[in-house]
């Protein structure tokens, strides 16, 4: 059953003052994600990965085309309630603590105080931040901030997870932790859409992988297909990496 359905989406950003359309972030873009799937989007910088995720969140409106989640328009509050979102550069309030953020999330969901406290303890254990619960975010390292943002995204046990570069800026230990968390949510049936440029991680946890370039989905593959794929001239790199490079060179030709 398709839960995320993007049809023919085109999006250009507008320059602030002149009003001219500058760069096309997405061109006639299609994306379909099944319930319970883990869909990884990979692509070079500026391919439009973040833009499609922001469209799914309703932060950015497409110029053309439709984006639906579970049969409802993106940005609808009832849809957003069910999504956990991790922005690219963790956008937390620097002067507030991770607990402050989680209390805010609990309040928007109408959680009881007791429940809130319990859930905060739980989630901070999960992301290994229990020791820094009350410290302002500005004192955090990049990895800690990323984990705090992840805690915020996971706090209300969403049905759909949209993660923008969840592994960037993390040390190997932190990356392992995030991969484990994604795996855990995958087994519990959560639909996960994420983008990354760390191909090795994508290869291990995704059920499907989309390769984006210049605002279009150049190819969609699965880890199973990759096993049998021909590595071609790219020797000494992972299967996904060679598939990725092949796809990109095919597109540019």
């Amino acid at each position: 059953m398709i839960i995320i359905n993007c049809n023919n989406i085109t999006k250009s950003y507008t320059a602030a003052l002149s009003g001219t359309k500058t760069q096309k972030a997405l061109v006639e873009f299609d994306l379909r994600v099944e319930r319970g799937e883990v869909f990884g989007i990979v692509g070079p910088n500026g391919a439009g990965k973040s833009t499609i995720l922001k469209i799914l969140m309703g932060f950015v409106r497409p110029d053309h085309g439709t984006a639906m989640i579970d049969g409802q328009k993106v940005g609808d509050l009832n849809v957003r309630r069910r999504i956990g979102y991790l922005p690219e550069n963790p956008c937390l309030y620097r002067n507030l603590s991770v607990t402050d953020h989680l209390v805010f999330a609990a309040r928007t969901a109408g959680m009881s105080k007791k429940q809130t406290r319990k859930r905060i303890d739980e989630i901070l254990q999960t992301v290994n931040l229990a020791h820094a619960a009350k410290l302002p975010i500005r004192t955090f390292s990049k990895g800690m901030t990323q984990r705090a943002a992840l805690a915020y995204a996971l706090f209300l046990e969403p049905e759909i997870l949209i993660l923008d570069e969840p592994m960037s800026g993390l040390d190997p230990l932190g990356r392992h932790l995030v991969v484990e968390i994604i795996r855990q949510y995958k087994t519990s049936g959560t639909t996960i859409v994420f983008c990354s440029h760390i191909l090795a991680d994508v290869e291990h946890i995704c059920t499907r992988i989309g390769i984006m370039n210049k605002g279009v989905m150049a190819a969609v593959t699965t880890p199973e297909e990759l096993v049998g794929a021909d590595q071609g001239e790219h020797v000494g790199v992972s299967r996904l990496e060679s598939f990725f490079l092949n796809t990109l060179s095919a597109v540019s030709n």
């Binding site: 969140m57 309703g58 932060f59 509050l77 009832n78 957003r80 309630r81 999504i83 956990g84 979102y85 922005p87 550069n89 956008c91 937390l92 309030y93 953020h101 805010f104 999330a105 928007t108 969901a109 915020y152 995204a153």
Partner: peptide
């Protein structure tokens, strides 16, 4: 500017 607004709009806040 610093996109902390995502933190708020990621919740069901219109």
């Amino acid at each position: 500017e610093q996109r902390t607004i995502y933190t708020i709009l990621a919740r069901p806040a219109s």
